[in-house]
Design a protein around this nucleic acid. Sequence first.
DNA 1: GTTGAAAAATTCAAATT
DNA 2: AATTTGAATTTTTCAAC
Lengths: 166, 166
Amino acid sequence: MPGTKLDDIDRKILAELQGDGRMTNVELARRVGISAPPCLRRVRALEEQGFILGYHADVNPRELGFEVQVFAMVGLQSQAESDLSAFEARCRDWPLVRECHMLNGDIDFILKCVAPDLRSFQTFLTEELTAAPNVGSVKTSLVIRQAKDEPGVPFDILEARLRREA
Amino acid sequence: MPGTKLDDIDRKILAELQGDGRMTNVELARRVGISAPPCLRRVRALEEQGFILGYHADVNPRELGFEVQVFAMVGLQSQAESDLSAFEARCRDWPLVRECHMLNGDIDFILKCVAPDLRSFQTFLTEELTAAPNVGSVKTSLVIRQAKDEPGVPFDILEARLRREA
DNA sequence: GTTGAAAAATTCAAATT
DNA sequence: AATTTGAATTTTTCAAC
């Protein structure tokens, strides 16, 4: 089940749906060059096999009143697995934390956060994040502007690699 | 046009589509409690007004052969606007760089990168990123694991704020 | 925002290669 | 084994209300 290999059409489907996740199945079928029924079956299979994890509308945080985006670099006091897991569970419970990645190197975690304004982020920072058990150091950096925000993976790189192998 | 305010139904639509961007309009209408035609009109309006920026399938990088995710913290030598823009333009051209955020504080940029393996990332790091004009310092951290990866914004926070204001 | 109707898309079962 | 065809169901989308 996990080792199921994808063919050219499957990869094209993934690339198209990564680019426009709300495209109709007939339009998708047209673009990948097959008829609608097998195209739909492939999409369902890609979902079931875990190649497609979900579909999401990309909303505009600023327009919705989330003016502030922050990256927080967090160091823990204990890196025992149970303590790492406990911190991750806390992150999942904090709505302002949208992403939590465990890293190697100096910092243990990087958190991508959003907040309505600086004041509410500061409240979260001092009363929740810094105050949480086992949290050693927290360094935060405000996002000034976003130069690039592409979803997922670069399919052109994937295709180039496959051509090289062939 | 930009100051158009959203009502409860609009926010519910955004929350639902953030959660499942491929939901049919009929199902969406049912969930937000109106009939399909006005629901579709609202979705189109939300798209045109920039509240919805796009729809994307969330693909599984590992399954697709992108085993490595890296955060790169980049410092530039010159922070003149033309130099910042030039670096951002380079990031947009690098397929492995999926996100590029300009930050305040010690680091100038944080880059989220994906790569098929460590070797190809190292090649990118040494031959492209570090070698690029005006790049002063680059610190990279591998993602060990992802504890949370939620798209967009926390709509429950938004609703709580609106209730407080009312 | 609702209702009603036409056009289009989804989805399944069989036939085809 | 996978794709196409054809057909029934559902959804989309546009009117007019």
